[in-house]
Design a protein around this nucleic acid. Structure first.
Lengths: 222, 222
DNA sequence: ACACAATGCGAGCGATAGCTCATATTCAGA
DNA sequence: TCTGAATATGAGCTATCGCTCGCATTGTGT
């Protein structure tokens, strides 16, 4: 028996130009409605209307509301990963403390890409059944970060890299997420910078060997 | 004009014994159904049925499904806070590193009180509109933890206690939550202990002054 | 110019949701 | 014992949901 197509998969490819427009409008409208009205009140009828398209067309391309939301999530995750990937590349050669600081800043920036959408996706999408995709981003981030740690192994204290990556990614994500989405008063002034300092200290202190400040850096040239 | 009663407030007090039983059954049934079927499929009709009560009775005491869920959340939060409060009391006299370790262990225990319910509350309840109560727990935890830090100020490096409490609470919560609810394989073996070690190092390293290990403890007797 | 495929339409189906209200039952106090 | 208040009942209302299907319109290849 053929593998059952997940119900969050788009129904068919748009081959003509006008249908591509339709599909884009649908995803865009979904994102707008998610932000404006939230997940529950974003009905397929409303989405179609907002997109200037009929419900029938909607169901030509997406078999369910979940599939539509999944498309929005995928798009958002791609944007996030792009930012994170760029930062990790840019930072690869830096000493770990500088690198970590830059990564914290990036995490905050990423949350500011589209904060309202991010918040809806994080807080209103039922993360069970077919829509576990919300967590997919963190998994990807985790893998990239582990590789990053691996390439800086000589600057680190002896660690289980898997575990360390888990600790770091989870902490960064939680701190920046909460700060941006629930304590936005923190982010206005120089508070943002202070938060970056603190987060950097948290992670750098965790990753780097104890005893004195700049010792181990020599090793990098051995 | 009188303050408008929030729609998550119970409708009336139960004065007779049998109605108290009804109310308890409703809350209990709601929790069970949330776990078994999730938020969306837990309809008021089903909840009433599960409680062995009619819908009408349900609406005598709770004006909406949200109010019922809010009651479940409150109950769960009270249980969590009880555990946390006890731990913080027990730990007040310990040196900060021991204290932090114990608090991490407690956080894990707290997540294990009723993991399935906790997961549903964390992942399926729309945290907008009337049901922001999910976040209330973290606020309470934050305040208690800030007081804890304050009473250990002499063991700490110079810090903004507000900010430090935010960093610590957010990190502990995220690490233990993710570990218990999304990486349960981590928690089976001695991995749990390793995680505790790591989390403790993360926070202790962040809170305590740099340079050498056990220096500052002298100050505690000054 | 013609035929067939691709795309678009939207009234309306069945299901289920949250919730009300007229009515019945049980309890507490006199 | 009797009466009014408290409590319990559940059929059924309205609204909205996700989604289908028969048909109209537009595009493509020949």
């Amino acid at each position: 028996m053929a593998a059952r197509r997940p119900i969050t998969t788009p129904r068919k490819q748009a081959s003509q130009e006008r249908s591509r427009v339709t599909v884009d409008a649908l995803v865009e409208a979904t994102a707008r409605l998610l932000v404006r009205d939230g997940f529950d009140k974003a009905s397929t009828n409303r989405i179609a209307q907002e997109a200037g398209v009929s419900v029938g067309s909607l169901y030509q391309y997406y078999p369910s509301k979940e599939a539509l939301v999944a498309a929005v999530i995928d798009r958002h995750n791609r944007e996030l990963m792009q930012v994170v990937r760029a930062a990790l590349a840019e930072v690869a050669a830096l000493p770990i403390e500088k690198a970590v600081r830059k990564l914290v800043v990036t995490a905050i920036d990423a949350h500011r890409l589209d904060p309202k959408l991010h918040r809806v996706l994080a807080e209103q999408i039922p993360r069970t059944g077919r829509l576990e995709k919300v967590a997919a981003f963190n998994r990807d981030y985790f893998i990239l970060f582990r590789d990053f740690l691996e390439s800086h192994r000589d600057e680190l204290r002896a660690v289980d890299l898997e575990l360390a990556a888990f600790v770091c990614v989870t902490s960064i994500e939680a701190l920046t997420h909460t700060a941006v989405l629930h304590r936005s008063e923190m982010l206005s002034d120089e508070m943002a910078e202070t938060l970056v300092d603190e987060a950097t200290r948290l992670l750098a202190g965790y990753l780097m060997p104890r005893e004195g400040g700049r010792t181990r850096q020599l090793r990098r040239y051995s």
